[in-house]
């Protein structure tokens, strides 16, 4: 996976990882290991929502994901096959 991603970056492409078995540790490793010479210091989820017509029913987030921090206890619910539970 990392090799494919690196070759895409080398060819000026954009890498998106749509399907992977959870827990998605290889993806995390790609980020931690500075794939594509990107020096990551951490990453987090950000939620942005703006609407004058609709309201959010429920948004649950218990913590950000930070390398070196603790992600235990977080659950992300989605309709795909790759629900994440860490």
């Amino acid at each position: 996976m990392a090799d494919w991603a690196q070759r895409c970056l080398d060819q000026n492409g954009l890498v998106v990882m749509p399907h992977a078995p959870a827990p998605q540790l290889e993806r995390v490793a790609d980020v931690v290991l500075a794939l594509g010479d990107r020096q990551w210091t951490g990453f987090s989820y950000t939620f942005q929502f703006e609407s004058s017509q609709r309201q959010i029913h429920r948004l649950l987030t218990h913590a950000t994901w930070e390398i070196g921090g603790s992600i235990a206890g977080n659950t992300v619910l989605s309709q795909g096959q790759c629900n994440i539970s860490l």
Binding site: P21, A22, P23, R58, L60, T75, L77, N83, I84, S85
Partner: peptide, 10 residues
């Protein structure tokens, strides 16, 4: 909380 039961395969 409030969502009910769901399966977490992983």
């Amino acid at each position: 909380d409030g969502i009910g039961e769901f399966e977490v395969w992983e």
